[in-house]
Design a protein around this nucleic acid. Structure first.
Length: 326
DNA sequence: ACCGAGCTCCGCCAAG
DNA sequence: GTCTTGGCGGAGCTCG
């Protein structure tokens, strides 16, 4: 089992502190056995104040960092010397000494300030909460800050943007460790979308020389932009410059579902968005997201979420809600 | 609710 | 020997 140790520092943000335990804890192998063991530690094993109106009691002190395969620095709003000069408190610095040389280092939100101040991020790309990106860049000129992504994967060092992107990052790590299928299972247990790769590149991966050409990422972006068209497997494979067989194989390995499953999911997602935010007729929406027919949209929505398009719109808008046009 | 033509998915396997 | 590729075929699915 892979051991994940979460370090909770003073004024930790409870939401973010809970993310690793929840997501890694949801990662199971085919027989349902947990793939990660999560422990939470604090300096001196002391009670930790949170950013909210309560404190947390942990079971471990910083020595728990020593046998961690992965160390997660939970969100802590930078204060004092860290905020002003980018310097770590002596006790935090000492605690980080326990981290093994091969441990993977992960930060959520402003936890990246700690990693940067400790020098781990020098010469690397990293991200942090967008509201802190300028301060971060000013304090740590040796770090290349990306403010426009959900997370950055530098291999042994991974940083995520604000709050919920910590979930995306943890899922990404599970995907890296155990494949997309396992990661999707964890996402399902957490009742969270297994894949957020919006319009822009929302994460940056360490450029692996061979990985870039073999990935279906570019084709997914391309397909996303032409949802309304009738895309066949051949179209996708051709765009990716792969045989159909290789494309489907890669796709499943990377995303954990088949190309058409993914495409349908996207279509439904977009249809829901339009149902929520516009008053367009179902027929128009169906065509817009690539269904030839409104009945097809109904069939798929029924199958995937058990709701008919109009009743989805109704529950979302509430009754009597005036509708503004598209 | 059902049906058939066509498409998709994936195990298998030979080839690189 | 190990890993990847891609054609084949049939089971299963999708769409009209």
């Amino acid at each position: 089992v892979h051991r994940v140790t979460v370090l909770a520092l003073d004024r930790v943000v409870p939401f973010d502190l809970g993310i690793p335990a929840r997501v890694f804890g949801a990662a199971r192998d085919a027989d349902g056995r947990p793939l990660y063991e999560i422990q939470t530690c604090a300096i001196g094993g002391a009670t930790v104040r949170t950013s909210s109106d309560y404190s947390v009691v942990v079971d471990h002190d910083e020595r728990a960092l020593a046998d961690a395969d992965t160390v997660v620095i939970a969100t802590q709003e930078p204060e004092g010397a860290l905020r002003e000069e980018g310097l770590l408190d002596a006790e935090v610095r000492n605690a980080l000494q326990h981290v093994g040389p091969d441990a993977r280092l992960v930060s959520i939100c402003t936890g990246s300030f700690v990693l940067a101040a400790a020098g781990f991020l020098d010469g690397r790309e990293a991200t942090t909460h967008w509201g802190w990106a300028d301060r971060f860049a000013a304090l740590f000129p040796k770090v290349r800050v990306r403010a426009d992504v959900l997370f950055v994967d530098e291999g042994r060092l991974l940083t995520s943007a604000g709050a919920a992107s910590g979930i995306d990052l943890c899922l990404h790590i599970v995907r890296r460790d155990h494949g997309a299928e396992v990661a999707n299972g964890a996402a399902r247990r957490c009742v969270v979308a297994p894949w957020r790769d919006g319009g822009q590149a929302q994460f940056v991966e360490r450029p692996l020389p061979d990985h870039a050409e073999t990935s279906t990422a570019a084709t997914r972006l391309w397909a996303r932009g032409r949802l309304g068209e009738a895309l066949t497997l051949d179209d996708l494979a051709r765009h990716a410059n792969m045989s159909v067989r290789t494309f489907t194989r890669r796709f499943r390995a990377e995303i954990g579902m088949s190309p058409t499953q993914w495409l349908q999911r996207l279509r439904i997602e977009e249809a829901c968005r339009l149902l929520e935010s516009t008053a367009l007729p179902v027929e128009t929406i169906a065509h817009h997201v690539g269904f030839t027919d409104a009945t097809l949209l109904r069939r798929h929505m029924r199958a995937q979420m058990g709701v008919a398009p109009l009743s989805y719109r109704r529950t979302f808008r509430g009754p009597g809600d005036a509708v503004a046009g598209a």
